[in-house]
Amino acid sequence: MESCRDHFRTRRGFGGTTVAGVEEIDRRIVTLLAKDGRMSFTDLAKETGLSVSAVHQRVRRLEKRGVIHGYRALVNYDEIGLPLTAFVSIKPNDTAAPDDAPERLGHLSAIEACHSVAGEESYILKVRVASPLALEELLQQIRASANVSTRTTVVLSTPYDYRSPGTDADVEDGDAER
């Protein structure tokens, strides 16, 4: 007997097989836009074999559903004076205290991302700063603002970042980002 999960993953709907509620053609559109958020509807239509109006409708539907929830510029942080990237793992000094570190740290603009994680630490923060001294000052602010201890890993280089949610077929076709 087919489980609900199997049915959901493999059900067929208008436009083709769906995976986790997203049709294959929509997944292709999302992958293309993740690689180039400024791709025109005309270029998306060429890449997917759909009409421009069909692509436009699908993109709007994906935005409305929250599958696509924004577009942004990819920034060269070295060029804007923030060459140092680090990951800061934090855990509360008082485990009985409320778990409100993200709210307490929200005012620190050097924190690019905050991830809740399983393991010894509660959160991992991705931070970008101008120098080791700026990182040291940020760590002090993090500790004081959220009453946490920190463990820091400094990034030496980034071979790749901002990878799109491509499929194995994309890699086999030579479409993988370099």
Rank of each mutant, 00 (worst) to 15 (best):
V55Y: 07
H56N: 14
Q57Y: 10
R58V: 13
R58A: 13
R60S: 13
R61M: 14
R61E: 15
L62R: 04
E63T: 10
R65V: 11
R65L: 15
H69A: 14
H69W: 09
Y71W: 07
R72S: 14
R72Q: 11
R72I: 05
R72A: 14
A73W: 06
L74R: 10
L74M: 09
D78I: 09
E79K: 14
E79C: 07
G81P: 08
G81M: 10
L82C: 09
T85Q: 12
A86K: 07
F87Q: 02
V88A: 05
V88Y: 03
K91F: 05
D94E: 03
D94Y: 02
T95Q: 11
A97C: 05
P98S: 13
D100T: 13
D100C: 05
P102M: 07
P102T: 11
R104V: 07
H107V: 13
A110L: 10
I111E: 09
I111Q: 10
I111A: 12
A113I: 05
C114E: 09
C114D: 01
H115M: 12
H115W: 12
H115Q: 10
S116P: 01
A118Q: 06
A118W: 02
G119L: 01
E120W: 02
E120V: 08
S122G: 14
S122F: 04
Y123L: 05
Y123W: 11
I124E: 03
I124M: 02
L125I: 08
K126V: 14
V127A: 09
R128T: 13
V129R: 03
V129D: 06
V129F: 04
L133N: 11
L133F: 08
A134C: 04
E136H: 10
E136F: 12
E137R: 08
E137C: 00
L138Q: 04
L139N: 11
Q141Y: 02
I142N: 01
I142H: 00
R143K: 04
R143N: 02
S145K: 00
A146N: 00
N147W: 01
N147M: 04
N147C: 02
S149A: 06
S149Y: 03
T150N: 04
R151K: 12
R151L: 08
R151D: 07
T152Y: 02
T152Q: 03
V154N: 06
V155Y: 02
V155L: 09
V155F: 06
L156D: 07
S157A: 15
S157L: 10
T158G: 00
P159A: 14
Y160L: 14
Y162D: 06
